[in-house]
């Protein structure tokens, strides 16, 4: 059993939990992820490691409530325990390039922030561009400011930071002649796709973090497969980081929608279940 030692609400749909998991904490590196299960019959849910404290034996993850599994997780409080917590999984991020731009989109910021932190700690020059739909969804603003030499907050409606997309800001920086050795983009597939189209034009190496639907996370099921450079790759063992200029985003977008109907149905069920509990 893995105890939740701390819980933080970051915004109405995003939370952070810190979990006592000494095995995972001892080895966790930026870019790696864990898989947890809330209860004995629960789904295996992958989350990126947001931070780890090997001394305390704890690992934190930041998650957005999107479906039945994350809703169940959100119902747990500090002091409750998770049934399973496996990790670290996946390859750590390469911390390369002196001048990097880290782009986070929406909850992808939860995945991007530990990467920004790792680059900063390695003494690199970090520019962060984070984008959200509106101000209610903004997360980790202070954390990003702390780990960035320059920080830009963007929102679709202009209610937080500047109005516009992260790609617009990136293009502006490029055109202003900012030296960029590497871009790391983490967020919705569509965002990563457009970032990559832009950086390809300017020949800037770009790494993306791919989060396809996973089950085991150990390379056993092939459910997380992606097409990268025309070849099949398993995101859980070959990634999750890939060369963004080689990823087939269109195929990945289709695969991520696989279980939409089933999940909608389970989500409604979980909602009904929780509502019932509330009623009782």
């Amino acid at each position: 059993m893995f105890e939740i030692t701390e819980k933080r609400i970051l915004n109405p749909t995003v939370e952070e939990i810190t979990v006592y998991a000494p095995n995972a904490a001892a080895k966790a590196k930026a870019g790696q992820f864990i898989i947890l299960r809330t209860d004995e019959d629960g789904e295996r849910i992958p989350f990126t490691i947001a931070s780890a404290d090997p001394e305390k034996g704890t690992v934190s993850v930041i998650y957005q409530i999107v479906g039945a599994g994350t809703r169940k997780l959100s119902a747990l409080k500090q002091g409750d325990s998770l049934h399973d917590f496996a990790g670290p999984l996946g390859k750590p991020s390469e911390i390369e390039g002196e001048n990097v731009v880290i782009i986070g989109g929406g909850v992808g910021c939860a995945i991007a922030w530990p990467t920004a932190k790792a680059f900063k700690q390695a003494g690199k020059n970090v520019t962060s561009i984070v984008g959200f739909r509106n101000k209610d969804l903004v997360i980790l603003e202070d954390e990003f400011k702390d780990t960035s030499d320059a920080f830009y907050l963007m929102s679709d409606d202009g209610s937080a930071g500047q109005k516009g997309l992260v790609t617009a800001k990136l293009e502006e920086l490029i055109q202003n002649g900012q030296k960029i050795d590497r871009v790391i983009a983490i967020g919705p597939l569509i965002m990563m796709k457009f970032v990559c189209e832009l950086t390809k034009k300017y020949n800037i190496p770009t790494i993306v973090s791919m989060n396809p639907i996973m089950i085991d996370g150990t390379g056993m099921c092939g459910g997380c497969r992606l097409v990268v450079d025309g070849k099949m790759q398993f995101a859980c063992v070959d990634g999750p980081d890939f060369d963004g200029h080689k990823v087939d985003f269109d195929a990945a977008m289709k695969r991520n929608r696989q279980y939409l109907d089933f999940e909608k149905h389970k989500y409604e069920e979980a909602c009904n279940l929780l509502n019932k509990e509330v009623d009782a």
Binding site: N23, K27, I35, F85, G87, G90
Partner: peptide, 11 residues
């Protein structure tokens, strides 16, 4: 038995 432990990653 130690489950949830991927040898090569966790150790």
């Amino acid at each position: 038995f130690v489950t949830n432990f991927v040898v090569g990653r966790a150790s």
